[in-house]
Amino acid sequence: MKAVCFVKSVPDTETRVRLTGNRLDKSEIKYILNPYCEFAVEEAVRKKEAGIVDEVLVISMGPSRAQEAIRSALAIGADRGVHIEDDNLDGSDAIVTARVLVEAFKKEGGLDNYQILLFGLRAIDGDTWSVPSMIAELLGIPAVTNIVKLDINGNKAIAIRMVEGGEEVFEVELPCVFAARKGLNEPRYPSLPSIMKAKKKPITRYTISDLGIPSDAVGKVGSFTEVLEYTLPPQRQAGKKVEGEPEQVVEELIKFLREVANII
């Protein structure tokens, strides 16, 4: 059995967002492998180490920095990468992204070759949480998103999905999409020898014409939504800050809760 992980390069969690006019200024951003994707790759590699999976493929779409995200995944232990890079892709929304990823996946043999499709639940930049479900829909297969546990048994899987206030235990037949969240595993730090090995692992590159996708089907032109503008959220102002005897500060807090917040 083979597994595929779809990964994304995203701004580091510490990144301060800057705007030029009403557009995002990407010049000073440091990019990392999306943390949720790390859970997905780690899970796939663990399934390989457990002898359940014999190949882990990593697919990423994005500019040249996506290659670094793929290398990071290879350093965790994935076997090879596919990088879809094309200037026409700039500005693609989730639906276009899902369609392009599916074409690349099909080019690699698709569901005939890969039965476990792993994603991070969400990319911490766009935060749409949508591509895993969209790809499952395009491929006509089930998906279990937001999982904290994944057991593979033959062509069946048991996956535990976290929902508000509880858990759903899903039983599914493979092939299936799984979207990982924190708690699924503790991703390893890639060791130095693994980093060196990752350098030698192959990465296949595709442009959209390699995938048979016309340029007007992707990017801003092909998308169903467009970002009209970016603005910075209103800065929260520091409010009142008090110090003193517990009885006295609690009294002031009660006053705040009653008169300002209207809680009591």
Binding site: L24, T225, L228, Y230
Partner: peptide, 16 residues
Amino acid sequence: RPAISGKVIVKVGFKK
């Protein structure tokens, strides 16, 4: 909607 963990607010237009 907010994006990048609430660090930016985005206005999204629909084409479809």
